[in-house]
Design a protein around this nucleic acid. Structure first.
Lengths: 195, 195
DNA sequence: ATTTGTACCACACAAATGTGTGGTATGTCA
DNA sequence: TGACATACCACACATTTGTGTGGTACAAAT
């Protein structure tokens, strides 16, 4: 689909975009030792025509990569036999960083201590992303301060309007919520880093 | 440290950079209905002085975010009794969202199917962030194509230079790696969204 | 009382940058 | 043959864009 040179130009543009600043036409010309800006525009036109980039007229550096050139991190669903892993048909969605981590300041991470939530897949040293709120619903995973003690992560349970904190580990017991306890927030994401 | 307005300008710049194209001085002026480019330069100067951005002279749109300005969500460690949750002394580290997703190129997410890794806290429907690589080490959690079948997530085991794929669930059995199997990548992060 | 920082404005200028119109040469495909 | 894509170049032009030099007003700190 793309010629070698066209691919080289696309790779250069991608690299610059990844570094945070798309190149100008003359910067591309300099990189490839082209004597004319017209040459660059021939390449850009070809890349637009083939669907790898989009240009915004009259704006400097306004080169965008299309989905074809892959800007977001793809989320793959089931990957059938024989199909290359990153093939387009496997892409279930794209992971939108901005959606998950909106720049609101009522979010914080909490490092999990202990194994009381291990049955829910929350392991010691995991990070849980917590949205600050003082109320929550049945089955929400909440961060709670119990008896003015340390902070704990548990499953909130509502049984006939009485609230309990339920661990996801049979070695721990259920704690009823009382007036000395306070919900700090609700767990909206759990993250574990292996490196 | 930053005034409300300075923060607003910084957030606008951040948003534009995330979208792939930093703004020009006049685009910032338009956004905030400033009548003069000089006003914008006052803001940029202030942001440079306070260490949130860096500028490259004579280049259009050349605004870079410093580490200080990247989206940092506080990570809390142990929160002792009586101390407000988000107090400074609880902050163990900052989770730098921009940094985690900056490499982009050889990363993809895979949605996990099945419960074969449940013992390692990787549940069905979790997203695992995978770095593409064809080799891995003992105990790494890897994404692998076995017998040219579907993709699977398992623990890689090296016993006397023989490689095995080990599930984290006793209902599944250990699979020896053979010439029809291929490591696709290494799991570097696991993410579970509750909303 | 003076300095410093914040928060704006006006206008001009030079450089950077995209655009337009031409050109040459080579090869492929129908 | 003709049409088309690729791969370059030259040069002029208009707009965009960063820069420079001024200004006003207000508030807080020294």
């Amino acid at each position: 689909m793309l010629t070698k040179k066209q691919n080289d130009v696309l790779m250069f543009i991608r690299q610059r975009i990844r570094q945070g600043l798309p190149p100008t036409i003359r910067e591309i010309a300099d990189e490839f030792r082209f004597g004319s800006t017209g040459t660059v525009r021939d390449y850009l036109k070809a890349l637009v025509k083939k669907g790898f980039i989009a240009l915004c007229e009259k704006k400097s550096r306004a080169i965008e990569l299309t989905e074809k050139a892959m800007l977001n991190i793809p989320i793959l669903g089931r990957v059938p036999a024989g199909v290359p892993v990153l093939a387009v048909e496997n892409v279930e969605d794209y992971f939108n960083v901005d959606k998950l981590f909106s720049q609101k300041d009522d979010l914080f991470f909490l490092r999990v201590h202990g194994d009381s939530m291990i049955g829910a897949g929350i392991m010691p040293d995991d990070l849980v992303l917590v949205k600050k709120q003082s109320c929550a619903q049945d089955r929400d995973i909440v961060v709670c301060r119990v008896d003015e003690e340390e902070i704990t992560v548990k499953i909130l349970r509502n049984r006939e309007n009485r609230f309990f904190l339920e661990p996801a580990n049979k070695n721990y017991s259920i704690i009823p919520l009382n007036e000395h306890s306070q919900i700090v927030g609700k767990v909206i994401t759990a993250i574990r880093r292996y490196i």
